[in-house]
């Protein structure tokens, strides 16, 4: 049964078919990927084995993404955790012609103007990486542990609004999960409902 499921999974990942029909569950191995970043470099998940990796689905036009960037909240998280050796990969799955689609140089200008500090931004205009993780919203956050296991899937925090004023009263799930995991504790809230704009996939 397990073998059958694995081969079904493989076929579907290759064909990028309805990836949401298959689970991206906390506790399972995080799906491997290769993607090109905004500087034209190849980024592989396997390159970061041995480190914690945060995936952040991003759309610079989305009011929920703006909440966390215009307040500086996301940049602060990026700086805090990359300084502690965590790899932070933002992912843009907006298709050409949709909200949030940017060229690599537009993205690099945006990073500079926002003072953002992800390790890299993965350009995913075809949506295959988004489908592989069944990313639903911007933001939608995932954390992969040093062994390659998914340890968090969900929202950035517990206030599903677009109001910056709510951030100070929010529990940040990503920070909480990283704090627990890096101190050897199990993650208390490992799966939450992500909130935000829908990812602007091609279809």
């Amino acid at each position: 049964m397990k073998k059958l499921r694995q081969s079904i999974l493989r076929v579907c990942v290759i064909a990028v078919l309805i990836a949401s029909a298959f689970a991206v569950r906390v506790g399972d191995p995080a799906p491997g990927f290769t993607a090109v970043d905004s500087n034209g470099r190849q980024q592989r998940l396997s390159d970061y084995k041995g480190k914690y990796v945060v995936l952040e689905w991003h759309n610079q036009g989305c009011p929920y993404t703006k909440k966390h960037y215009e307040s500086g909240n996301m940049q602060q998280l990026q700086k805090e955790w990359t300084a502690k050796g965590v790899v932070w990969l933002s992912v843009i799955s907006s298709a050409p012609g949709t909200q949030g689609f940017v060229t690599p140089s537009q993205e690099n200008d945006y990073l500079k103007s926002m003072n953002a500090a992800p390790t890299a931004v993965l350009m995913d205009p075809g949506g295959s990486l988004g489908h592989l993780y069944a990313a639903k919203t911007t933001p939608h956050m995932f954390i992969v542990d040093p062994s390659g296991t998914l340890i968090y899937n969900g929202a950035i925090d517990d206030h599903p609004t677009s109001d910056q004023g709510d951030i100070k009263n929010s529990k940040n799930y990503v920070s909480a999960a990283l704090q627990e995991a890096t101190s050897g504790k199990p993650v208390t809230e490992a799966a939450t409902r992500p909130y935000g704009c829908s990812v602007k996939y091609k279809d």
Binding site: I18, A19, S20, G130, H131, A134, K136, S198, V199, Y201, D203
Partner: peptide, 8 residues
Amino acid sequence: QSNPQLAD
């Protein structure tokens, strides 16, 4: 349903 992955 805007696409096969998302329904609101």
